[in-house]
Design a protein around this nucleic acid. Sequence first.
DNA 1: ATTTGTCAACGAACTGGTTCGTACTTTTTT
DNA 2: AAAAAAGTACGAACCAGTTCGTTGACAAAT
Lengths: 128, 128
Amino acid sequence: MTTDPIRPSDGELAILRVLWDRGPSTVRDVHADLSKGRDMGYTTVLKLMQIMVDKGLVTRDESARSHVYQAAQGEAPTQACLLRELMDKAFEGSAASLVLRALSESPADPAELAAIQATLDRLRKERR
Amino acid sequence: MTTDPIRPSDGELAILRVLWDRGPSTVRDVHADLSKGRDMGYTTVLKLMQIMVDKGLVTRDESARSHVYQAAQGEAPTQACLLRELMDKAFEGSAASLVLRALSESPADPAELAAIQATLDRLRKERR
DNA sequence: ATTTGTCAACGAACTGGTTCGTACTTTTTT
DNA sequence: AAAAAAGTACGAACCAGTTCGTTGACAAAT
């Protein structure tokens, strides 16, 4: 029994991406990473991460003075959750039409097309 | 020169979906349709649609007493816009990985798989 | 020992979106 | 003609998310 992934807000997602990338990190670490792109205060990141603990999006090891945070849910289920949400809001719940739109709007290179083809083949095989 | 689609909020998107479906409609029409699902006040819908005029999401014909609203942008570009946003926020900008995730998380039926295959083939042909 | 730096905690302000009550106008009905 | 219904406009409240300043604890450097 896996608990459903919690839908992160935009800011929270940005932090999760860093945590998925770096593994367990302090606020300082995350802030440093995030500051490369946009420029935001240290306490902003801290506050967000504290909220995320409450929501269960991250876990926190408080044994050291600088707490160490870790993503509580994987990247894949979170992506799936966001995708499902968009699917419901804008594609009448149809994953296929979402995929079609994504495909026909975005210039994918041959390697990516091949990867998609492979997944498609696998799905067809399973569904038999 | 086409102006970029404007990113609608959730409430706005719900209204756009009705307009795409029904074509030009009055607030009453939209409200009736929307009320089937969730239950919201008439003036709530009205206010939202007024805001949407300001934002350029819909156009309004005021010649009759009941103003008639129409979606200002198509469904496809709007979907593409939302997809791009999610792609940037959660898939490091990669459309391919978004598609892969959508495919492997959602049970598509054979007909849908075929449609996706067709689009894939078309893309490969174009890209040559 | 004092100063300086690092950290967590928290409250306050601000933003965008949503919701609805109320006021006012124009029709339609009686 | 008066009352009721249908419509727009608008302000106010509210909510979630974001941003940051300030405070106080603790540790490190001088």
